[in-house]
């Protein structure tokens, strides 16, 4: 997209998606770089979430794709299922919108934090547990060792999302796709989760794709912003430029819809 093509860790080019005879994505281009948060904005149904799911190969059955999604040069769309599964959760991982439904209610936090660790990294039970406790510390869950034996319903919404983030980060992925990670949370804890994401992105050199319809969230932490509409990226650029001097009429519309917009 920009200069330094070589540093793009995930590059989506000309991605198309058809589902049940309908065109959902009409040629999406996006590039993610390590240590940067790339915000993907747009109204519901604009194809933001589908773009994220496509990068994980988790599209609904019957979906037909075109274009390329390259992870460090490897095209994920043409990769055999087995190899894709090996990358999923390992190199590319995902945080879902609502942690009260994306964590299994009947499995302990420790179980959910360690099963993919043990699968991908072949850690033994003890090493995986060590790593899990470390991760919980990293996302600032108090008493991490004790927390491992507890269940999702014993945590607040914000803590659950922190745990979901810890799960996503367990195998040290290069790319993190966060699909509306704060939408289901109380406003009071949203900022904390965003700050955590930003910090992890900086400290670990993660490339983050932040899918959100909330431009306020976007302006708080994104480096680059892309705006989607009807399955197409209508505008891409550094946050400052896109949010202050929008080139596209739709971006302007979105910005005008923000409360207290005059001071953006």
């Amino acid at each position: 997209m920009t200069d330094g093509d070589s540093v793009d860790v995930l590059r989506i080019s000309g991605l198309t998606l058809d589902l049940g005879g309908r065109r959902i994505l009409g040629g999406v281009d996006l590039a993610l770089r390590p240590g940067q948060v790339h915000g993907l904005a747009g109204e519901s149904g604009s194809g933001k979430t589908m773009t994220g799911l496509a990068a994980l190969g988790l599209l609904p059955p019957g979906a037909r794709t075109g274009g390329r999604i390259e992870l460090e040069g490897t095209d994920l769309l043409t990769l055999p299922a087995r190899q894709l599964a090996a990358l999923r959760g390992r190199s590319v991982s995902m945080v879902f919108q609502d942690p009260s439904t994306s964590l299994h209610p009947m499995l302990s936090i420790g179980h959910q934090l360690t099963d993919h660790l043990r699968h991908h990294l072949k850690l033994d039970r003890k090493a995986a547990k060590e790593r899990a406790a470390e991760l919980l510390t990293q996302v600032r869950i108090p008493n991490p060792r004790e927390a491992l034996g507890r269940y999702p319903h014993q945590f607040s919404g914000g803590m659950r999302q922190r745990i979901a983030i810890a799960i996503a980060l367990a195998c040290e992925p290069k790319v993190l796709i966060a699909d509306e990670p704060t939408t289901a949370l109380d406003v009071t804890v949203q900022a904390g989760v965003l700050r955590l994401l930003r910090g992890l992105c900086d400290d670990l050199g993660l490339a983050v794709l932040l899918v959100t319809h909330d431009l306020g969230v976007m302006s708080a932490i994104a480096d680059e912003v892309s705006v989607m509409r009807h399955g197409l990226v209508v505008e891409t650029g550094p946050r400052g430029r896109v949010l202050t001097e929008p080139q596209h009429a739709y971006t302007r519309q979105l910005l005008d819809a923000l409360p207290g917009r005059s001071t953006v």
Partner: peptide
């Protein structure tokens, strides 16, 4: 259809697990 099943797949766990 639950989210947590999709999340488990996103973790790259084998289908059997």
């Amino acid at each position: 259809n639950q989210d947590y099943v999709r999340a488990a797949r996103a973790k790259g766990l084998p289908g059997r697990t």
